[in-house]
Nucleic acid binder design. Structure first.
Length: 263
DNA sequence: CACCAGGCAGTGC
DNA sequence: GCACTGCATGGT
């Protein structure tokens, strides 16, 4: 441990592959993370043994949300139920990333009815085809040809991507305002786009706009809530339910508790 | 062959 | 309001 931050405070292996971001890779303990749109792309190389590339760079420190106190959040969650305490203890170094809002929104449109490995491949091909390595600009997807998107593997999501880019381009969606306006208004604004439903809207808001009260309900979270919190809803987790959601999602997917498969 | 993947839109009731 | 179905694609 170097520079006062431990794996229990920031775990790369529990945070990066936990289904919230899609542009990273790992080889022999060395992680590469890409973030940002177009020529504004940033590239991080870091290992768990030495997190100084994160702690000493304000951009990456913010990206990994080092300014939020997860210890007190976990303490509060753990008092809710033994199962919740197990989920927090299972991977205590999970954090909610501060990703670019456009990148997050677009990525989660790609994610629908898809698996994480394939999502990562599609986004990688989009970055190379449209972004020169950075995430595709809104302006480059507004006029994207549907055949090109299908060639990259988007399938039925191809028109959804174009719809989303147009809504951002013409101002129907103001990504910066989504960070602060009323959360129900924010969700409704996103869901006006054909191709954005409640799950994608919540993921975009949680992972791209840092709206920590958003609680995306995917197939895994539906299992968790039905089996471990019957009759309850996200309100039992309080105003930071989105953080609780990430601990539960990761625990459900990878612990084997729900007879899952790893990928 | 079937079924699934960090869902959604369309349709029918 | 809720239940059901088709949807592109690749993996198991």
């Amino acid at each position: 441990m170097i520079n006062g931050i431990t794996e229990k405070q920031l775990s790369l292996k529990d945070t990066l592959p936990s289904g919230q971001c899609f542009r990273f890779s790992e080889q022999d303990g060395l992680w590469t993370v890409k973030a940002g749109v177009g020529s504004g792309v940033r590239v991080l190389t870091v290992s768990q043994d030495d997190l100084r590339p994160i702690t000493e760079d304000p951009f990456w420190a913010h990206f990994f949300d080092l300014d939020t106190d997860y210890e007190s959040l976990k303490a509060g969650f753990s008092s809710i139920s033994p199962f919740m305490a197990d989920a927090c203890a299972y991977a205590p170094g999970i954090r909610i990333l501060n990703q670019d809002p456009w990148e997050a929104l677009c990525s989660f449109v790609v994610s629908q009815n898809n698996n994480i490995k394939r999502i990562m491949g599609i986004i990688d091909r989009m970055c190379n085809f449209y972004g020169g390595g950075g995430f595709p600009e809104v302006s480059s997807l507004v006029d994207a040809k549907e055949d090109d998107l299908r060639m990259l593997g988007l399938g039925f999501r191809a028109p959804y991507i174009v719809n989303t880019a147009r809504a951002v381009h013409d101002g129907a969606i103001d990504l910066e305002k989504l960070k602060s306006i009323d959360i129900d208004v924010a969700r409704a604004t996103l869901m006006k786009v054909k191709g954005i439903g409640p799950k994608v809207a919540d993921c975009a808001l949680l992972f791209g706009c840092h709206r920590l009260d958003c609680f995306p309900m995917d197939v895994w979270m539906k299992r968790v809530m039905a089996e471990c919190f019957p009759g309850k809803d996200k309100d039992i987790f309080g105003p930071y339910a989105g953080v609780a959601q990430q601990y539960l999602f990761h625990y459900a997917r990878t612990s084997g508790y729900f007879s899952s498969r790893e990928d």
